[in-house]
């Protein structure tokens, strides 16, 4: 499942997240917001209407507590969101394997959000605003999103573009290496990123290793984000909702 899908010169960027190394510090969430020009919370925002393309979820279980960084899982097969978008605002890029969201084309119908089993998509419920002065910190390589459109993690596509441009300028073709903001910010190096098509990358190796799993593998969406844990109960959580009311407090 991790091996080459084709013999072309395409990349399949993927991630391996070591849940055991995540301390829930949230540095990745802040780094993501800074890199991708996600505005601070609107006055009315809450944990259900806020925009956190990278979101660390605290999972409490009888066996202990685990922190699960959740972002777009970049589904490869039957990509749920891309299949349902009525106006092609979501596309799976064959050159990178990244599921792209094109805000300028988005109608804001939110059908893709209903389709995503990972709840990794976020809607701009209001106009994005930055406190005075903070607009100076905006990243010029990423366009901020307007009100009324959906957004999500795109593996820091702005950084991919920069890496690609640099490679082209140096006369190189084919997949490029780059690092998304969350990977860079994680102090415990819980996230590994790279090209799954390239057998030399550590992400490829880690994804194959014992203890690596994908979330909701059973529904057949083939995510390119893998998780790892030594703890049995964490690996067991890769399946579905337990369906019991225990642990329903606080998320």
């Amino acid at each position: 499942m991790i091996a080459h899908k084709d013999n072309s010169n395409n990349a399949r960027y993927g991630m391996v997240v070591d849940i055991d190394r995540c301390t829930g510090c949230g540095a990745c969430m802040i780094a993501c917001a800074v890199e991708n020009n996600v505005p601070p919370a609107a006055p009315t925002a809450n944990e259900r209407t806020g925009i956190t393309p990278m979101r660390v979820i605290r999972y409490e279980h009888a066996g202990g507590t685990a922190f699960v960084p959740m972002m777009c899982q970049q589904c490869e097969d039957e990509t749920p969101c891309a299949a349902v978008c009525p106006q092609n605002a979501v596309e799976l890029d064959p050159a990178t394997g990244i599921v792209g969201q094109i805000p300028q084309r988005c109608l804001g119908c939110r059908y893709c959000m209903a389709a995503c089993p990972y709840h990794a998509r976020y809607f701009n419920w209001g106009d994005p605003t930055w406190p005075d002065g903070l607009e100076k910190t905006l990243n010029p390589s990423v366009a901020p999103r307007m009100r009324g459109v959906v957004e999500k993690c795109n593996f820091c596509h702005g950084r991919w573009h920069e890496a690609k441009e640099l490679a082209v300028a140096n006369g190189k073709t084919g997949p490029v290496e780059y690092t998304p903001a969350c990977v860079e910010a994680c102090p415990s190096r819980a996230i590994t990123f790279g090209d799954l098509n390239n057998s030399a990358t550590s992400v490829n190796e880690l994804a194959r290793e014992k203890g690596s799993f994908r979330l909701l593998d059973s529904i057949g969406t083939a995510p390119k984000v893998y998780y790892r844990s030594r703890r049995d109960w964490v690996r067991a959580a890769s399946g579905n909702a337990s369906g019991t009311a225990e642990g329903a407090h606080r998320g």
Binding site: G26, M29, P40, A41, A45, I57, R250
Partner: peptide, 13 residues
């Protein structure tokens, strides 16, 4: 930073 709202307003981390 105002972006810390990601951790305690926009999520329940």
């Amino acid at each position: 930073s105002p972006l810390m709202t990601k951790l305690w307003v926009e999520s329940s981390l």
